[in-house]
Design a binder for these strands. Sequence first.
DNA 1: GGCCAGGTGTAAA
DNA 2: TTTACACATGGC
Length: 198
Amino acid sequence: MNKVRRLYATLLRRYGPQGWWPAESQYEIIVGALLTQNTNWKNVESAISNLKRAGRLEPEGLLCTGSGELEALIRPSGFYRQKAERLRALTRKYLEIAGRQKSGARAVSREELLAVKGVGKETADSILLYAYGKPIFVIDAYTRRFCKRHSLFEGKEYDEYREFFESSLPRSAKMFKEYHALIVRWGKENGQEKKTKK
DNA sequence: GGCCAGGTGTAAA
DNA sequence: TTTACACATGGC
């Protein structure tokens, strides 16, 4: 049993299952993944609840919402102008994937998500893992801090971290979901040391 | 009042 | 390839 697995057991014992991703639908996960970019989750919840209340938290409904109205609804999540635009692009991709799945065509790929403007590696991987159940380990700022703090791994590239975790753990989406959630939970209780000036 | 939050795209060096 | 900066709100 390696250190990565032992730490997982420790976190799970300390915090219990986190039950991520907190959402009522697959589409809500995708919307949350985009809105949470560099943003406090509380603000995202507020934006999502606005969308829900307005009946816009579904792909077709969101796409037929005017720019001004959409921006106003997601305003609490910050970067609201660009996020409104990017949310539309991602929603179109989501519908395209859904249509394909219905006809049994090829499955969702990381590349096509990355091709959507506003979707970077973390967002793409969050979507693949939490919305589509693909066994891909999500790396975020907390994960890097976690690695450093526990002397697990010190790399540079996003994919180096991802491969480190994926090669240290059984290939299980269920475990990847829980581990990432636990790291975030850990991160919220362990503020960063100093802030090396990003 | 400044720092931070479950990043990403773009432009310049 | 690396670094710098814009994007923006809300909580402490």
